[in-house]
Nucleic acid binder design. Sequence first.
DNA 1: GCCAACGTTGGC
DNA 2: GCCAACGTTGGC
Length: 149
Amino acid sequence: MATFLFKTEPSEYSFAHLVRDKRCTWTGVSNPAARIALRQVKRGDRILIYHTGDEKAIVAEAKALTNAYADPAQPGLNDRGEVNFPVVDLAPVKLWATPITLAAIKSDARLKDFGLVKQSRLSVMPVSPQQEVVLNALSTGTKHNRIHA
DNA sequence: GCCAACGTTGGC
DNA sequence: GCCAACGTTGGC
């Protein structure tokens, strides 16, 4: 199972919307690098949800209900035989008690190569196993701090 | 196939 | 609101 991070502008479609909808099809990814990542998503993969704009934090996680597949509105393959406009269906898993802020991610040297830091416009990106370990630690770490505050 | 001009994203 | 860092477009 792999892990990915999906960005969204919460005023357009937030994790709360996904909870309300129970599932959604993640469409509209046009950036080529983001599409490369999106094509790799498989059913069961863990999807971290990042809110852009005022929030700038990983706020929740979801899971892929499907492999990446061609957007029915824009079917067809590209010249490399890949799905041209990939989409994937998601279901919510849980809202995190404490988001991991972009500031926290940027300030951690172990995440200096993370797509979120390196390429701020990238909207879908893989999370390597090593990066996921660090993010998991940041997530539980903040909760831990809260309990003891 | 280059590249200048323009458009977009998203952090600041 | 600004602008850096990309992408895209279209004239040549």
